[in-house]
């Protein structure tokens, strides 16, 4: 980060080029000092409580750190990763994490896009939908989980009661049976993540100029064609940004599922974060838990690079 003063090109964005070179360089040095001063109050806590622990955490993944009084910690190279390769439970939790993150992100995106399109119309009563669309964001994930546990309660929850009223099977244990637990948790995940996605897509929609639409309409383009050729391309940057973030957030999520199922039944909803949490704080294997974290970072990064590259290629094409 000491490269600031050597960055002549990036610096000129806001300034008109001046004729006197020496003056400019002095100005720039003063500006760099100022930048540092302004950034310092934010940098110090970030360095202490986020960069430093992160670096330590990564290193911890190469040690045999374990719970215990006066334990000696030593590096064990790649041993943790060799062990992880043979740990089928870890990989199955990874598979569950991938299914969870991709399905939630995808469904969230589709649901939020539909809602954003509706909210962008001048429909009566849309204020209600708009408020409700934002509300899940104001509710702690723990509360969301409790609420859905009540709704999905197999004996007294309204979902089963409505099914029973319609004459359908009404004794489904949504969060407790092996086959249904993960899909159920995914639906709750979609509900809880709607606000951020909806609001971002709505912002993107409002940024697309109305003239483009009018032009397309005059050319005789139907609603669907206008959506395909005007709305979607205009939204693309926003879509990529929000799905990327959603994907990361969902993969790393913890609280919602911790309270909903705690990874059960029988590990069917054991997201990687829950698995690593248990490894560290139930079984006391800190080194191995940190190694899991490292593997997660590498895999997310690889995935992101592939995703973003594919998007960039699609954009060029």
């Amino acid at each position: 980060m000491t490269a600031v003063t050597e960055a002549p090109l990036a610096d000129t964005a806001q300034r008109k080029p001046g004729p006197q070179r020496p003056k400019r360089s002095r100005q720039r040095r003063a500006q760099a000092r100022e930048t540092w001063l302004l950034l310092l109050p934010a940098l110090i806590p970030v360095a202490l409580l986020s960069v430093y622990p992160l670096v330590q955490g990564i290193a911890l993944g190469f040690t045999n750190a374990q719970a215990g009084l006066n334990q000696v910690v030593s590096f064990n190279g790649l041993q943790n990763y060799v062990d992880l390769l043979g740990n089928s439970l870890f990989w199955s939790s990874f598979r569950i994490g991938a299914v969870w993150a991709i399905s939630v992100t995808l469904l969230q995106f589709l649901a939020a896009l539909g809602l954003a399109l509706l909210l962008n119309l001048k429909l009566r009563g849309r204020w209600l939908a708009r408020t409700l669309a934002l509300v899940p964001w104001a509710i702690p994930p723990v509360t969301i989980a409790i609420m859905w546990r009540l709704i999905l309660n197999p004996d007294y929850g309204p979902v089963n009661q409505i099914l029973g009223f319609l004459g359908l099977p009404s004794d489904i244990n949504w969060l407790g049976s092996f086959a249904i637990a993960l899909p159920t948790v995914i639906v709750v995940g979609v509900w809880s993540g709607m606000p951020q996605t909806t609001i971002t897509l709505l912002a993107g929609l409002q940024n697309i100029s109305g003239e483009l639409h009018e032009a397309a309409e005059i050319d005789g383009a139907g609603t669907w064609q206008r959506f395909l050729h005007v709305t979607l391309p205009g939204l693309q940057p926003v879509i990529i940004a929000i799905t990327t973030l959603d994907l990361i957030w969902n993969f790393n999520s913890f609280a919602l599922v911790y309270v909903l199922t705690a990874g059960g039944p029988g590990g069917q909803t054991m997201l990687p974060m829950l698995f690593a949490y248990n490894e560290a704080f139930r079984y006391g294997d800190f080194g191995s838990a940190a190694a899991m974290g490292n593997v997660m970072v590498v895999i997310i990064s690889v995935f992101l690079v592939l995703y973003l590259r594919a998007q960039a290629r699609a954009k060029r094409a």
């Binding site: 622990p53 992160l54 330590q56 955490g57 990564i58 990361i248 949490y277 560290a280 800190f286």
Partner: peptide, 17 residues
């Protein structure tokens, strides 16, 4: 980057700090 890293990686050292 700070969004990518899972909290599990941070929490143990953070706890010690």
């Amino acid at each position: 980057l700070s969004q990518v890293f899972p909290f599990i990686l941070v929490i143990i050292p953070l706890f010690l700090v």
